[in-house]
Design a protein around this nucleic acid. Structure first.
Lengths: 347, 347
DNA sequence: TTTAGCACTCAAGCCAACGGAGTGCTAACC
DNA sequence: GGTTAGCACTCCGTTGGCTTGAGTGCTAAA
């Protein structure tokens, strides 16, 4: 691909930013004006034809102005993604939004997605922290019915997951209590990613000493852990903000989009790909993802973490045509804020 | 209001059921035909004019057919609500849908709303069981940070709620453990609705005996309980089914509706009003509710329970124009199924 | 290489005409 | 007196032609 000279670049930028603002195709006259009138529209037309040939711009139909192709948009985004700082006032507002949050981590995350949706006027999403990235705190077995055991797993960061295990035989609460202390001791301060291995190792040892009941307890813990690790979750707020974009005033598109939102597993997959430790803001255009239904949206995301460990992803989903330069700093700042809050609170 | 004679009734039914099927206003000729040709369209026109005068039918404009008013629809619904049995095949299918559910009650509820949405082709909703209607099983205090305590509350039916309490002073895990047994003993088998009173009473006694730490523990329990009781939740599945109805192909209406769905508190309020112990299927037209945004939908609901205690509400939300006679038996049967499952599992 | 000019294209808005569904009313009918 | 046929009238939705305006590509001159 040919390099773009300065003028090409400028025209491309003008077309794209014009399009992002108005949503309408941008014509040569408009560009010429914004260019300061130094070049005539005819010249611009030539440049635009070149850019079209390069696959960066396209025409919805002859006699319409140009809009960017996905490739063109990508190029543009890469060039603006080195982010500006968010201005002081906005920062204050975002910090303020966190003030009355309760200690529960769920509240924190839900609040975050709300913040994102409100400040960016798009859909805000927060991917639930990866359980395996957190540290074991406590496990509790409760005998719900003679053959059903509820297992509650708590991580140091305050994540709680519970699941119910159908157990083949009757087991008493006393037995469960007896061993739960041992399991708690065994797993103390272990990253959840390593818990499984530890349990399995221990199960072997227990078998060797013929401690059947302990083996059983471990088994239960093991099962519960599996369900927990398989669980993923996501908070979405402000989906209806998307309805305000003219690109989704078409009912068909709209429906397609909302259907994609309804099946969260696809969204989770998408956000998962955006999880990169230590990363700054990242933009994924729908066409670049593997989720066909999300073709017409774009995800501006950032990773949040505690200390060095990347926990999850948060971000904003909106139409391809968004005010990226406004939203990018917000996402960035929100991710930092959340990371800070997580770091401060639990030690 | 004048009584309707048989013919009036028949015409009303014909108009409404025709309208429910097609969505278009129904004209006199159509009714005359469906009537078996025994009466001419002119006669029908006279009857229809009468019904309009009574406020049961209305015309979108002169020279259009008639559609029911809300009052007319209400009358019609009241007459058909004595429900038919669901046919054997559908029953099988619904039962089948529950087969692979895990023991966790959350799964059960989510599955239920899924079932409703799929079988009725509308949005399925399930209101989270009222915590105060369930029975205390277990409480657990976990010291998350020196000043933060996580309280986990479990009901006999397997509901789990947790909250984090910021505690003014440092409290050790040992202290918490020491008293949690006492609290558990104290609240054993108590309906959650009565727990609060019991705790308060006990706090007085503890104060009298100067058992400060116990008072504190009770205080924590008390706080956690409050948050828990305030919590209400709701599962919604298949919102996008609503988008298929032609009445919501208008983007404005659509938006209004989805916004109402996004703020769950309003939905919860609506469903709450439908909670009536021992009740059969109930229909609430949007115009009859206090939620303005839900004007154009209708809720077909039923109460699910365990034994004698009404736990929550489930149902279907769809446009005013729905296939009520098909959906009513489904909602009814689903409510029974869920109640049965809840009764069977936990004893 | 840039620019002015011109012919051409296409979407979108406007308007008038038309067809169809349905009504209300009147006068005849049983 | 209730019922029906007939008729004039109303109103919506669709169709199709027409116009307008934004924008293009090409050509020829600067």
């Amino acid at each position: 691909m040919n390099e773009l000279n300065e003028r090409d670049q400028k025209v491309l930028d003008a077309v794209i930013s014009g399009y992002l603002k108005s949503g309408d195709p941008v014509g040569s006259r408009t560009v010429s004006k914004n260019y300061g009138g130094k070049v005539s529209s005819a010249t611009i037309r030539n440049v635009m034809a070149d850019l079209e040939e390069m696959g960066l711009l396209q025409q919805p139909h002859t006699s319409a102005g140009r809009i960017p192709t996905d490739r063109g948009l990508r190029l543009y985004l890469d060039s603006i993604i080195q982010l500006e700082q968010l201005d002081q006032k906005q920062r204050q507002l975002i910090r303020g939004a966190y003030e009355q949050t309760s200690g529960a981590i769920e509240d924190l995350l839900r609040r975050t997605s709300k913040v994102l949706s409100v400040f960016c006027r798009q859909a805000g999403v927060v991917l639930w922290p990866k359980f395996e990235a957190t540290v074991f705190k406590h496990i509790e077995f409760i005998r719900l019915t003679p053959r059903q055991i509820m297992v509650i797993l708590i991580s140091k960061s305050g994540l709680v997951e519970h699941s119910v295990i159908d157990w083949g035989e009757v087991i008493s609460q006393e037995t469960l209590d007896k061993y739960s202390d041992q399991v708690n001791e065994l797993l103390k301060d272990l990253p959840l990613g390593e818990v499984k291995a530890r349990i399995l190792k221990q199960m072997k040892d227990a078998k060797a000493t013929f401690d059947q009941l302990f083996t059983k307890t471990l088994n239960i813990a093991q099962q519960a852990l599996q369900t927990t690790l398989d669980n993923s979750n996501i908070y979405i707020e402000g989906q209806t903000n998307l309805l305000n974009s003219p690109e989704f005033s078409d009912v068909g598109r709209m429906r397609k989009l909302l259907q994609a939102f309804e099946d969260k597993s696809r969204l989770i997959r998408l956000l998962d790909t955006a999880l990169n430790p230590g990363g700054r803001v990242q933009i994924i255009l729908g066409s670049e993802s593997e989720v066909r239904e999300l073709e017409e949206v774009s995800l501006i995301s950032s990773t949040y973490s505690r200390g060095e460990t990347a926990l999850g992803v948060l971000g904003v989903i909106g139409p391809l045509r968004m005010d990226y330069s406004r939203i990018i700093p917000i996402v960035d700042f929100t991710a930092r804020s959340l990371s800070n809050l997580l770091a401060e609170e639990r030690n």
